[in-house]
Simulated scan of single mutants.
Amino acid sequence: MDSKIPLCLALLLFFPSFVMGIEVAIEVNKEFSLHEEIMFTFSIISEEGMEVVYVPYIECPSLPVAFLHVHNTLLRAGSEFTSEYKALKISQDVDSQSCNAVVSIINPVNYTYRKNFNIIADKSFELSPILCKDEACMFRKRTYSESDLIYLDYVADIEDIALASSLIYPDNTRKDISVPSTLKPNVPGTYALQLTASKDGYKTISKTATFMVIGKQGNQSSGSPERYAQKWLLVLLEIAATILATLLCLYLLKIHAKKTG
């Protein structure tokens, strides 16, 4: 058997686009940064007139795969078809990564073309609000009483951040505060410490920590003398109503017995 035949078959399988006379060129920026829209242009050309079915998209390791749209176009021999694909605008949530602009030919051949680009995003950092019972923050907790002094603080893994902090009270009122600071609450309920940190070249990070303040037993309205008096009055009224209903039933039964007797 002629050894050139397997070689020719291998070339046909490995270079299907050239066999069919289809060429695809992709133009994409080398880099995209925050707030820029990822997009690329591409062109398809064929030596013969034919219908081409294709799918443009991007490949990024930490971005969700977008819904793929299948397109088709009728190529004229030697004429170039040009189009563009728009993916997404880079937001604060997107991380730096290496990606590919992709055009996949589905018909009349099955072949995929790729061209690399990079996403250059702002770096991230860790920010954590902390709630403590002592200044050294040896004891962290989320439940306090009205008599407690609460230490409000934070930790971050970078320095020189611009920090905005606010405290949300149980009635949903908000007050801007500085952190670290202390709080001695006089209203029971749920509080929230909100922090927003920023720095040039980094993403803006927002974090919230909620904590509960429990009122003193003697100050709770459910244990006031007035509430106890109201409660006992209701109990006595229920007992009186039950007795009256019982007596009425006995009276009616007695009358019924006399009539039947």
Rank of each mutant, 00 (worst) to 15 (best):
H69S: 14
M20V: 10
Y113W: 11
K30P: 06
S221W: 15
K254E: 09
A192E: 12
F15D: 12
V19E: 05
A229K: 12
M39K: 10
V102Q: 04
K254N: 10
D134C: 02
L75D: 04
T73P: 11
C8K: 12
S128N: 13
V103D: 06
D153Q: 05
L88S: 08
E31K: 05
L68M: 15
K231E: 08
M50S: 06
T190L: 07
T208E: 11
T143F: 08
T41C: 08
L247M: 03
I105V: 10
Y54W: 09
A245N: 10
T182P: 01
D160F: 05
L68V: 14
S17D: 15
L193Q: 06
S166H: 07
P170M: 04
T143S: 14
R142K: 13
L149N: 04
A240Y: 03
S43F: 08
A66L: 15
M39F: 10
I26M: 08
L7C: 06
V52I: 02
T196R: 03
Y251R: 13
S198A: 09
V65T: 15
L88Q: 07
M138E: 13
D157S: 06
T112G: 01
I239D: 02
S145Y: 05
L68Y: 13
E59S: 14
A192N: 07
I44V: 06
A229V: 10
P188V: 00
P64F: 09
L183A: 01
F40Q: 01
N100R: 11
N118L: 10
A241V: 00
S124T: 12
I214D: 08
L127F: 04
G189A: 00
F211G: 08
V109C: 01
A229G: 08
K254T: 05
T82S: 14
S33R: 07
P6Q: 06
D122T: 09
N72Q: 13
L75N: 07
Y85K: 06
I161R: 00
V102W: 03
I205Q: 02
L252V: 10
A164L: 05
G201E: 07
A241R: 00
K231W: 04
D160E: 14
A66S: 15
S128T: 12
T210C: 05
D93Y: 10
S17W: 08
G49Q: 13
S33A: 11
T260H: 11
L74G: 05
L237R: 00
K216S: 15
G218H: 12
L167E: 03
P185Y: 01
L233R: 14
T73G: 10
T210K: 10
C99S: 12
F117Y: 07
F18V: 05
K86I: 07
P185T: 02
T204F: 13
N72H: 13
I106A: 03
P129G: 03
N118H: 09
K258H: 08
S221I: 14
P16H: 04
Y251W: 15
D176T: 09
L9R: 10
F117N: 02
V24S: 05
C8I: 14
L127N: 01
Q220A: 15
Y228L: 15
I119T: 01
S221R: 14
D200C: 01
I5M: 09
A229F: 12
A245S: 13
